[in-house]
Amino acid sequence: MLQTIIKVFRYLANLEWTERHDKECDFCDHTKLEVIITYDDLPEIMAVENHTKAGKNHWLIMPIEHIRDIENLSPAHLELLRSMDDLKHRLLNKHDPDVPPSEIHSGYHRGRWQLIWNIYYPDTISIHHLHLHVIVRPKLFKKWFKYPPWLPLMWKSDEELLREVEMLASKGK
């Protein structure tokens, strides 16, 4: 228990309260990725198996093009998000067709966003390249603390993000 408290304290103490700019992106350099899943009819996206699984299966679905985080999305990205959603369903149908939706946790870590002046909400993303987490039968601790549906400052479900971008697109913004 004490080890867990120490880990949580170190994590919180090392959060960055200003915008972090990575010099190079691990997801843009595909040589660093292990198992890459692609479909010829979805050339703008790919998926990888997360090396630190938070559940039975854990994939990261991402665009080939570098987009920093969900805070940088606009209506122009609507088709990209729909393609990412399509790949999510393909992976689930292929690997876990009998798992009920209640046992699938999917969404995005929130990127940095400005609170006031030059102070930002702490950046919780380890790699700043837009990526959708798809976790089948998530481990309870990871779901509630690393991928927390209860904390919208850190996590946004993929369904919610897709609805928001669709609404922006319908308003012509």
Rank of each mutant, 00 (worst) to 15 (best):
R20V: 14
I70W: 01
H30T: 15
L168S: 12
K53D: 06
N50G: 08
R110A: 08
F9G: 06
P97L: 12
D158V: 01
M62D: 06
A169V: 03
D85K: 08
W144H: 15
I61L: 09
N57C: 12
M1L: 07
V8T: 12
K7V: 00
D40A: 13
N50C: 08
Y11C: 12
P75H: 05
H77P: 02
G107F: 01
P75A: 10
R137M: 04
D22F: 13
F9V: 13
D22Q: 12
L132T: 00
S126M: 07
P100M: 04
K139C: 07
N50Q: 04
I6G: 02
D96L: 02
R163D: 07
D86T: 15
A76M: 12
Q114I: 11
I37W: 12
K156A: 01
V134Y: 01
H131F: 01
S157P: 07
L161H: 06
E159F: 11
L80C: 15
H58C: 14
P97C: 07
I45H: 05
S102W: 00
E49T: 14
E79S: 12
H105D: 03
K53R: 15
K94P: 04
K146R: 11
E44W: 04
F141Q: 09
I125W: 00
H21N: 13
W155Q: 01
L130R: 05
F9H: 09
P152F: 05
H89M: 07
H77R: 01
L151P: 02
V35N: 14
S102E: 09
H89S: 09
L87I: 08
G55P: 10
D98K: 07
Y108H: 08
W144M: 13
P122C: 06
L168F: 13
D123M: 00
E164Q: 13
A13V: 08
I116M: 11
V35A: 11
M62L: 15
D40S: 11
D98S: 09
E65W: 03
M62G: 06
K173W: 11
K53L: 14
W144K: 15
D26S: 12
H129L: 10
L161M: 10
H128V: 00
L162Y: 09
L140Y: 08
H131A: 05
V35Q: 13
K88A: 06
V165A: 03
N72F: 13
R68L: 08
K23M: 14
D86V: 13
M154G: 05
M46V: 01
D40N: 14
R112H: 05
M84G: 03
G172K: 10
W113M: 13
I104C: 10
I64H: 12
Y108K: 02
N118G: 09
F27M: 02
E160Q: 14
Y108L: 01
E19F: 03
D85F: 07
R110P: 08
N72K: 14
R112M: 03
H95C: 10
E159C: 02
G111F: 00
A13P: 02
G111Y: 01
R10P: 03
E103C: 11
I36P: 10
G111D: 00
Y108I: 01
E79G: 13
Y108N: 03
V165Q: 04
I5R: 12
K53W: 01
S74K: 07
M62K: 08
L42R: 10
W113G: 06
